[in-house]
Amino acid sequence: MSSVKNVAVVGATGAVGRETIRVLEQRRFPVGELRLFASPRSAGMTVPFAGREVPVRALECVPAEFEGIDLVLVSAGGAVSRRVCPVAAAAGATVIDKSSVFRMEPDVPLVVPEVNPQAIRRRPRGIVANPNCATIQLVVAVAPLHRAAGIRRMVVSTYQSASGAGEKGRAELEADTRAFLEGRAPVQSTFARPLGFNCVPLIDRLLDDGSTFEERKTVEETRKILEAPALRIAATTVRVPVLVGHSAAVFLELERPLAPEEAWAELCRAPGVVVVDEPSVGKVPTPRDAAGTDAVYVGRIRRDPSVEHGLALWVVADNLRKGAATNGVQIAELLL
């Protein structure tokens, strides 16, 4: 890598923000100055980076905060993104936003570097969108199969960890699990139902058609990234009592025949994919195995006999890293 960049991280003390800072250091991104921003209650804290403690500033959303900054990574939620991204871009920075605010805007590229790196070339507003965490791992896994045999229809069920709701989600799962074991009242404020020892098929708000916004994001973002606007997709998203790591059961109806062995070979060649597929000896991808890593793990690759040219697979990734922080830093690397 070359060309040192001055970098700002907005939402620096949240789960994804802290992971972003770690990933910048681990991947040796050429950071010159690093500015960290968060809410006023986090001002004055410090975050470790490259052997030093970097102070956190209270975000004011004014252009002066981004003067001299080349790259801004934003992971502070939609309301903050809506305010800060245009300000930072107008100050001359390229903004990588991890909220859903800009993802479906036609003049904002939605990028997964292993799948559609070319999309980053056209960014007239100076903003690049990072997809939804579950969508990222899904498209990394299915894109090589789409190129090989064409996807006619996809049915996907995601099993998403508590940390997908941030630090407060992870803390609530831990507290509710203890409450359940100790016979106390459930702890619930972040999720639609108590999450300890439970599965909750409601993520984000409910829409008029009975789907959730999380499910709509899965459908619409996948179509945009794959450049397949007519692709038929049915999605169900479920919150599960896992601390870190999202999983997905994926069923594909393909345009052309693709044997499981051929799919296995395509996935083994695909960037960012690790195939773990020896179920007879218990070698299958799990969230615990994926936590702390950047790959998308695929296993249980098999024929789906319910449709012509059907294929089924299981996909797992760390939602805080590849599902958010690492994908954002990989986008930044495309800009070097």
Rank of each mutant, 00 (worst) to 15 (best):
E60R: 07
V108F: 04
K224R: 08
E33P: 09
R269W: 10
R27E: 15
D176H: 11
E19G: 10
G282F: 15
G14I: 00
V200K: 12
R121V: 08
L336K: 14
T13C: 06
P186L: 02
A43I: 06
Q137M: 13
A76W: 04
G92T: 13
V139P: 03
R152V: 14
S100W: 11
A89I: 06
I225Q: 00
P55Y: 13
V284K: 05
I69P: 04
L34G: 10
V238C: 05
P186G: 03
R170T: 09
L320V: 09
S3V: 07
T326L: 10
D176G: 13
V9G: 04
G328Y: 05
A175S: 13
L258D: 00
L313G: 02
A179M: 06
D208M: 02
A291S: 12
E19Y: 15
G210Y: 03
A119Y: 06
T218D: 06
M45Q: 12
L336A: 11
D97Y: 13
A76G: 10
D294V: 13
V4T: 14
R27T: 13
V307D: 07
V281Q: 09
L334G: 11
R302A: 11
V219L: 02
A141I: 06
K322N: 15
E220R: 02
R35Q: 08
A175G: 10
T94P: 14
A290W: 02
L334D: 09
Q160W: 05
L145D: 07
R256W: 12
E308C: 13
T286W: 05
V156F: 00
R122Y: 02
A228H: 01
E221Y: 03
E167R: 11
F251V: 14
I225S: 00
A228Y: 01
V111M: 05
L335Y: 03
P305S: 09
A93H: 04
A12D: 15
R232C: 09
R193D: 15
A79W: 12
A185L: 12
V281R: 06
L181Q: 14
R103M: 05
L73M: 07
P287G: 06
T177H: 02
D176V: 09
I203V: 09
S81C: 10
K283H: 11
E33S: 13
E105P: 10
E253G: 01
C268E: 09
A263M: 00
